[in-house]
């Protein structure tokens, strides 16, 4: 009994806080869902900060209804990954290019100081060929926020409400594999995040279940594919009938293929790729504990 208590105490002491920033409901899940799930499975506490409202990502629903459904489905998907809390910043999807970058940065910084994460997941703003620029803007803001959260002279009012400076020790920059050069280390400088592959074999089923929760987005993906094929005299037999079963199958193939791509050349069966900055090389020495 004493041993068990000791074990629980040790594990609790090691449990970390993980803050996940995502531009939209699907990006964090497809690019990093397995790694996040493996952290929550070992006892870490995770919080999702969703920047936009996903109001445009459906096949035939109004913006309001699209935003409502995607919000609920994103919360369900996050829960399945073990994420305890979802915070939505509520910016309109596709419109981050018109939002003040400093405003967005400071809102993310607020949550960094509030939750004091040990680990931050952020969309990689330096990844190339990510056509959804909301991800780029959200990533830039989050990257900057991870830096300014540690600096006292940023947002003095935050200190007035007890939000003190905070250094996040581990940064996982994520992106789906659009960038052909994503595995090239960009620099040998110690300050630059390095490519890192995370084994998600044990979490793949969980990631698939979470992806299946994004019903509105998955349906839209299937319908857009079918529409494109139909307009060019082609068909994908799987989508001859678009229903819950065929959309689920398509979604599962998507997640499995992404996991296989991530694992390519690594010896793992299923993996996710990141650019990673940890305490040893990601944080300037003046901030190291």
């Amino acid at each position: 009994m004493r041993l068990l208590i000791l074990l629980i105490l040790t594990l609790a002491a090691q449990a970390r806080t993980v803050l996940v920033v995502t531009a939209d409901a699907s990006d964090f899940l497809l690019a990093a869902g397995g790694t996040i799930a493996s952290m929550t499975a070992r006892g870490d506490t995770a919080i999702l900060l969703r920047v936009t409202n996903d109001e445009k990502n459906s096949w035939d629903l109004s913006p309001d209804e699209t935003a409502r459904r995607n919000g609920l489905e994103c919360a369900e998907a996050a829960k399945l990954l073990g994420i305890g809390k979802v915070v939505s910043l509520g910016y309109r999807e596709g419109e981050l290019g018109g939002v003040s970058p400093t405003e967005l940065r400071d809102r993310i910084m607020f949550y960094i100081r509030l939750h004091k994460p040990d680990v931050l997941f952020l969309p990689n703003p330096h990844a190339e060929y990510v056509e959804v620029l909301d991800r780029h803007y959200a990533g830039l803001a989050a990257e900057e926020a991870s830096h300014t959260a540690a600096l006292r002279n940023h947002q003095p009012p935050f200190a007035q409400v007890g939000l003190e400076t905070h250094v996040t020790r581990e940064l996982y920059y994520y992106a789906q594999p659009f960038d052909p050069r994503r595995r090239e280390p960009e620099s040998t400088a110690t300050f630059v995040p390095q490519p890192k592959v995370s084994d998600i074999g044990a979490m793949l089923d969980r990631k698939i279940r979470a992806a299946l929760a994004l019903k509105t987005i998955n349906h839209a993906v299937a319908m857009r594919i079918r529409d494109r094929l139909e307009s060019t005299g082609r068909r994908l037999p799987l989508l001859d009938t678009v229903n819950d079963a065929s959309v689920a199958k398509l979604t599962e193939i998507n997640v499995r293929t992404l996991a296989g791509t991530g694992a390519k050349g690594t010896g793992f069966q299923s993996a996710e790729e990141f650019h990673y900055a940890g305490p040893d090389f990601g944080v300037p020495s003046k901030f190291r504990k």
């Binding site: 056509e131 659009f178 993906v221 594919i225 193939i253 997640v255 791509t261």
Partner: peptide, 10 residues
């Protein structure tokens, strides 16, 4: 190209 997880299937 915008669907890296589905491009091989397609």
């Amino acid at each position: 190209s915008h669907l890296p997880g589905l491009a091989p299937l397609l």
